[in-house]
């Protein structure tokens, strides 16, 4: 994405700079030194084939395909969070702002080597957008004519985020708001915090 835009986005971000830098360093280091990699072509062909097969089986019922992808993602997320925590051992986030930084700088970095921009905070500070400059899931993808405007190709990501955040007691709504595949200017995922499930926080943390 253009440099001018990204800088204007981060300036609207009242994040604690040293903390963010620490998270970024942790994410970079973990990705570089502690994670085995898989072939990118293999990865996006696998995912693409799943989506294409779902589209075929549901005969173009793209709302249903979106739902299935979300469910796949959710099932991934509730498991993947353990992997993430085992790797990073990050402490619980005291603010949602910090959560957003962890998701962007650590989680996406470690699993997909991406650092989506955190942007578009609402006034209540409980909702933000993740703006993706690139999307390894959707590389080389062109949506079939009927799917544009209905299919969220990378909807699995929303499910992953929803499942993973739920396991650390953050009840969030996660959805795509735009996708470059559909001809939008950028690929944005909105994460909205409904509530912190305080009753479910395991004893012994306070």
């Amino acid at each position: 994405m253009p440099q001018s835009r990204s800088s204007s986005l981060s300036s609207s971000n009242p994040a604690n700079a040293p903390q963010v830098r620490h998270l970024k360093a942790l994410g970079d280091d973990t990705w570089k030194n502690k994670v085995e990699k898989v072939n990118a072509e293999f990865f996006h062909l696998t995912y693409g084939t799943i989506v294409a097969q779902l589209c075929e089986e549901y005969a173009g019922d793209y709302a249903r395909v979106n739902g299935e992808l979300f469910q796949i993602g959710y099932n991934l997320g509730v498991r993947l969070i353990e992997d993430f925590l085992a790797r990073t051992a990050l402490p619980r986030c005291d603010t949602f702002l910090k959560t957003s930084e962890v998701v962007s700088k650590c989680a996406f970095k470690i699993f997909l080597n991406l650092t989506p921009e955190v942007a578009h905070w609402n006034a209540a500070r409980d909702s933000f957008d993740l703006v993706f400059g690139e999307n390894p899931l959707a590389e080389h993808v062109e949506l079939p004519p009927g799917a544009s405007g209905q299919l969220w190709f990378s909807n699995v990501l929303c499910g992953v985020l929803r499942g993973a955040l739920e396991m650390v007691q953050l009840d969030c709504d996660v959805e795509f708001v735009s996708d470059t595949l559909r001809g939008d200017m950028s690929t944005d995922i909105r994460v909205k915090l409904n509530k912190v499930l305080r009753d479910e926080i395991p004893a012994g943390e306070d």
Binding site: N33, K34, E36, D83, A89, R92, A203, G204
Partner: peptide, 18 residues
């Protein structure tokens, strides 16, 4: 999928506080 030789390589914060 953990790249060796060890699972992690630095100090960490315990989640078990009380």
């Amino acid at each position: 999928s953990f790249k060796g030789p060890d699972f992690f390589n630095g100090p960490f914060t315990s989640w078990n506080k009380s």
